[in-house]
């Protein structure tokens, strides 16, 4: 996908020159009238307040001290006596760092299994010829269309039959190789020029070598998208771990937060601190790897 972000980064010298001369212009070098510009920024700031404001309010609440009125009307946006005390108290109330570690384990494992499994299967579907390839492709397409929410009870009974329920393995397994990711990798491999691999084949490289040394390095971008969405999906998941985990020792962060909310609902400062712990790593990850997130939406628009 090529959003305008890609094209606009001053790659076109004419645009760059025009932009310098005319002050504020858009991508085509047309000048934006001042009143329109002011209106645009005003609207942008309103939407900014609506989208980011609630996060900042939560952060502010989590930093307010025990003697500060968090219910005041009119509200106080900045903490009077900022303190990290609430974060320590969350850890006293629930083993929040253990939960974070559980989430991290599942998310990291999900990245590895998805990158390896999806790229292997995608490579087979795109570059190898075998009987049943169409059937295999169809299996992945069908699996992609099955709504997770509809099969969650059957997944739960399957896990029971496998003796895995109430383990982190069970949290990981159903999404460990996403059908969507397999198809994404397949498309990425299909879009590679064929000739390089052909040449490698003539030189005697076997399928593993072609996959590992030639094809895989050429699809790093898609692989990054798969990795990021695998991490985010596992870190943010709620319904499935809620169903499969019953032992509070094995909770992931989202389930722990739900538990915290249910049990200590009257202490908003604690819940706020917990949510900040859960969301901060992802916001940092997002800030660092923005363009892959946006690419993922374009490439994986079917993901829902």
């Amino acid at each position: 996908m090529s959003t305008e972000t890609d094209t606009a980064k001053g790659t076109d010298p004419v645009t760059a020159v025009r932009r310098r001369r005319a002050g504020v212009t858009d991508k085509e070098g047309r000048r934006v009238p001042l009143w329109q510009l002011v209106l645009r920024y005003a609207l942008l700031l309103v939407v900014l307040a609506l989208t980011v404001g609630p996060f900042l309010w939560q952060l502010s609440t989590s930093l307010k001290g025990p003697h500060e009125d968090i219910f005041s009307s009119p509200p106080k946006f900045l903490p009077g006596q900022p303190t990290l005390d609430n974060y320590a108290r969350v850890a006293d109330t629930i083993p929040v760092w253990d939960y974070a570690l559980n989430s991290l384990k599942v998310a990291a494992a999900n990245v590895v299994t998805n990158c390896v499994g999806a790229s292997l299967a995608g490579y087979a579907l795109a570059r190898m010829r075998f009987r049943g390839r169409r059937a295999a492709t169809l299996a992945f397409i069908l699996a992609m269309l099955v709504p997770v929410e509809g099969i969650i009870i059957a997944q739960f009974t399957t896990m029971r039959d496998l003796g895995l329920n109430n383990t982190l393995i069970a949290v990981l397994l159903p999404g460990s190789i996403g059908a969507m990711n397999v198809l994404l990798m397949r498309n990425a491999f299909l879009n590679l020029p064929y000739e390089v691999e052909e040449a490698a084949y003539v030189d005697g490289a076997n399928a593993w070598q072609r996959y590992l040394r030639i094809a895989l390095p050429a699809v790093k971008g898609t692989l990054a998208v798969v990795a990021i969405f695998a991490f985010m999906g596992a870190w943010d998941d709620f319904l499935w771990p809620l169903i499969v985990l019953s032992d509070p020792d094995r909770f992931t962060l989202t389930i722990g937060l739900n538990y915290l909310h249910g049990t200590f609902a009257n202490d908003e400062r604690l819940v706020a601190a917990g949510t900040v712990i859960a969301v901060a790593p992802l916001i940092v990850l997002f800030a660092c790897l923005q363009r892959y997130f946006f690419r993922g939406v374009g490439e994986g628009a079917v993901k829902g």
Binding site: L120, F140, L142, I151, I177
Partner: peptide
């Protein structure tokens, strides 16, 4: 050499998708 059957490449994906998406669908 490692055996490089296409099915070996596709097996992990097919296994996960089969056991945790398609089979649960049918069993539902």
């Amino acid at each position: 050499q490692l055996p490089s059957s296409p099915w070996l490449f596709a097996a992990p994906g097919l296994l996960v998708v089969g056991v945790f998406s398609l089979y649960p669908f049918v069993s539902t």
